[in-house]
Simulated scan of single mutants.
Amino acid sequence: MQQSQTKYVTNPSFRDWRGINNKGMDYAVYSDVLNKQLSHPVKLYVHRKGQ
């Protein structure tokens, strides 16, 4: 099993990734804000082509 790598994603880093990989889009979310304490963190994984 491949060991996971944790990355901090910012708007500029996402824009860079989007430009390099020619994927991803901007989108608008219209919603009321609900702050909720989670029992454990949510982990997102992004797989790059060829890895």
Score class of each variant (00 low, 15 high):
residue 7 K to W: 13
residue 50 G to D: 15
residue 33 V to L: 09
residue 5 Q to L: 08
residue 47 H to W: 04
residue 42 V to C: 08
residue 10 T to A: 05
residue 23 K to Q: 11
residue 16 D to Q: 08
residue 41 P to S: 12
residue 46 V to H: 02
residue 25 M to A: 06
residue 11 N to P: 02
residue 9 V to M: 02
residue 36 K to N: 15
residue 42 V to T: 10
residue 49 K to Y: 09
residue 15 R to L: 11
residue 11 N to D: 04
residue 12 P to S: 07
residue 37 Q to N: 05
residue 34 L to R: 08
residue 25 M to T: 11
residue 46 V to S: 03
residue 18 R to P: 06
residue 19 G to N: 11
residue 43 K to T: 12
residue 22 N to L: 14
residue 6 T to Q: 11
residue 14 F to P: 05
residue 44 L to N: 11
residue 38 L to H: 01
residue 45 Y to S: 05
residue 30 Y to W: 02
residue 13 S to G: 09
residue 48 R to I: 15
residue 14 F to H: 00
residue 41 P to H: 04
residue 44 L to E: 13
residue 10 T to D: 12
residue 21 N to V: 11
residue 3 Q to G: 11
residue 17 W to F: 11
residue 10 T to N: 12
residue 44 L to T: 12
residue 11 N to A: 09
residue 33 V to T: 09
residue 29 V to I: 14
residue 11 N to V: 09
residue 44 L to S: 12
residue 12 P to I: 06
residue 44 L to Q: 12
residue 32 D to C: 10
residue 31 S to F: 01
residue 16 D to P: 02
residue 19 G to V: 07
residue 31 S to M: 09
residue 10 T to V: 04
residue 48 R to E: 14
residue 47 H to M: 07
residue 39 S to I: 03
residue 19 G to T: 12
residue 17 W to Y: 04
residue 10 T to S: 13
residue 22 N to Q: 14
residue 36 K to I: 09
residue 3 Q to I: 11
residue 34 L to T: 08
residue 26 D to T: 10
residue 31 S to E: 12
residue 1 M to Y: 02
residue 43 K to L: 04
residue 15 R to V: 12
residue 12 P to K: 08
residue 38 L to T: 01
residue 30 Y to K: 11
residue 37 Q to M: 04
residue 38 L to N: 01
residue 16 D to H: 03
residue 23 K to D: 14
residue 22 N to W: 01
residue 31 S to D: 13
residue 29 V to F: 03
residue 42 V to Y: 00
residue 39 S to W: 00
residue 45 Y to D: 09
residue 12 P to C: 03
residue 42 V to L: 06
residue 19 G to L: 12
residue 6 T to V: 14
residue 4 S to R: 01
residue 40 H to T: 07
